[in-house]
Write a protein that binds this DNA or RNA. Sequence first.
DNA 1: CGATCATCTA
Length: 604
Amino acid sequence: MAMSVSQLLIGCGESSSAASHILLLRYLNRALDSIKHDITQIFANIFCSKTKFDSNVRTCGDEDPPPPSFEHLMATMDERYQLRARDWYSKQKDYDDKRDPYAVFNVLDTMLKDSLERLKTMRQSISLPDVGFQECTLEVNYAKHVHLIRDLCLLRKVGAALWLRRKMIHKCVVPDVFTHNYLVNGLCKTGDLERADWLIREMVEMGPSPNRATFNTFIKGYCLSDNVDKALYVFSVMVNSDIRPNRVTCNILVHALCKKGLLEEAWKLLGEILEEEKDKESPDLITSTILMDGHFKNGEMVQALSLWDEMVQKNIQIDVVAYNVLIHGFCLSRQMKLAYRYFCEMLKRGLLPDVFTYNTLINGLCKDGKFEEASYIHGVMARIGVTPDPISYKIIIQGLCIYGNVGRAHNFLVCMLQKSIVPEPHIWNVIIDCYGRLGDPDSAFSIRDQMLAFGVLPNVFTFNALVHAQVKGGNIAYAYSLKKEMLLSGLYPDVVTYNMLIGAACNLGHMRLALQLHDEMLRQGYEPDMITYTELIRGHCLRGNMEVAEELFAKIQKTGLPIDHVPFQLLIKKYCKIGKFDMAYDLYQKWITRDQRDYHLHWA
DNA sequence: CGATCATCTA
């Protein structure tokens, strides 16, 4: 007799129980509820957008009532969804009437896509054990367990996979080394290196013995969690265990060292490994690409380009990634002409530029403020069949905001929404921040409302941008109320939030409030930074509390925080203003000699 | 095993 799905899910070959059936039923019910929820919401939105759309086109939209099916759905919806749909409807109104219908469809597209994705995942997770259902007979076929373990690892459900492995071992069937490698990989990808370590130790003790792939995966895991020392240690264990490292091992480590900017170490390690191997005397394409990228990012053009020349001379088949690294290198050093030259060269060689290539070029152009050209490339890539991704948009939007061209940045945001790409918080934040910076808090808040309408949750940066907008506009009371709103959204103010509020209080001479905020900040466990102290000094200077200002200044010298020019300038200016030129001169001398000392230390 | 971006406060 074949086993049931629930047995596979829960009992794994052991006798079925009523409890496991109930669990499976609950799981299926929850999945169905979730789908029902999505569909209800989609219809609710179709209903709203329809009336809205009609009223734009005709003079009176009230004439045709919604079809009965919509009415029925509206009636069956619970209050929460009605509220949400209504909120959304009214918020769209004051945004952009012309584009409204499109925005509505975009939301629907996004929701539909999202729902379909979720349906897909749910279906897969149900049919995954289902596969086993067909072939599992009383003679348990452990190959199916092995597949299940691998699939679970790829889905990042390592806990379940490990549990299944334990089950197999209890039945005296030990999964093979490949399956174990899947487990190690899953643990590394989820950042659980302790358990990966434990698993490998168990492999050494009980088998199957770890192989090269096991060690490569583990080393990569440590590199990903930014622990190169541990990665190198594992590498030494590997060598001592008589497992020969290969190219992949080498590239993983070289890459990790380059990422830390340790190019010399990378070369040294590479030399040692190549020495060991003996059969290959020079780095391959990937190693060269990694090193070239590292040199470019360190600003070492000569070394980077000599690697390129070497590749060309050795007639290595250079690929798109290597070209991308080279083009990026030229963009980094503001040599757009050369970047274009190699872009053309790769086309001539029959290599098709990908989204990385285009984004790299767009980024280079944006950094130079060449937005016409950047927009042009952005348009071209789509026509050539390389669809701009969220990063393409992020680059342009951010570039435009840095140059204060928020109107155009906003247009690109609208463009994204029209294409059903819902931007991550970062993009919204950049635009909100730019509006605030330009002294337009109303627009900043309207973007925030739109962000909410699209279901994107604001983060600390969003709130800080809004606080900044209010502080800049002189609306201190609103700025303070934002701190409360933040807490209500489950977010905590950070040092930047406090600094802005303290700064605002100081500028108004409200030193008591400023100190109160300073204390609150300490209670929340935040260390004041140079900006906090500078703001407080500014406030005390403003109020003429020079002794307190001086005390604070002495205090920051003791903290060991690097002091920049701002506190010096503040105090010197104030001393001049009140006629204490000797004090001003004294401080000036201190400042100058300190900088000279630092200058010498820096070049020593 | 390699490549694009990477926010805010004086």
